[in-house]
């Protein structure tokens, strides 16, 4: 049970059952979609980027608690955050999810470290087949950010 309790923390189940910013955005936005064909998890993301800051975001999709909670926590982490910082959070999140020991993405001394609530997902690392669930929302976000980059360099 110990490993399971570490995986399914209270905060993860809360985000699974009460996902933040579920829905779509009506006005101008960037849309990205991700899915894991092997397990059927789906994630749809709308983001609004204004002057280098993520000003709004909404998500839809279906899947396991890990994929959906990861997406919901991502919503909390990115809205109101400058794109550069969002990329840094994403990078640290991916490091946290790698099985090999790498750079420690968690700043243990500073309250409200870069990852915040997202640290609750570190238990996933012990379940290698589930890492792709946690990564789905973030891979979709990277797609959206790349699209935003292309759009701004094209205009």
């Amino acid at each position: 049970m110990a490993q399971l309790d570490e995986l399914y923390r209270e905060v993860i189940l809360d985000h699974y059952r009460n996902p933040r910013r579920r829905g779509t955005i009506d006005g101008d936005h960037i849309h990205a979609e991700g899915n894991n064909p092997s397990c059927g998890d789906e994630f749809y993301l709308d983001v609004v980027i204004d002057d280098g800051v993520v000003t709004d975001a909404a998500m839809q999709g279906q899947g396991c608690s890990i994929s959906q909670a990861s997406g919901s926590m991502m919503m909390d982490a990115i809205v109101g955050t400058p794109v550069d910082e969002v990329r840094e959070i994403s990078r640290k999140f991916k490091i946290m999810m790698t099985i090999e020991e790498g750079e420690d993405p968690i700043d243990h001394d500073r309250p409200g470290s870069v990852l915040g609530d997202l640290e609750a997902l570190q238990g996933v690392r012990k379940f290698p087949v589930r890492i792709k669930c946690a990564d789905l929302a973030w891979t979709t976000l990277e797609d959206a950010l790349n699209t935003a980059d292309e759009m701004s360099s094209a205009s």
């Binding site: 399971l4 399914y8 998890d41 396991c64 379940f127 087949v129």
Partner: peptide, 20 residues
């Protein structure tokens, strides 16, 4: 409970089921 979560929990007890 999503089937993948079930499969993970059951696997902790050595039980192999499929989810998806």
């Amino acid at each position: 409970i999503h089937p993948h979560d079930l499969a993970t929990i059951l696997d902790q007890d050595g039980i192999a089921i499929r989810a998806g």
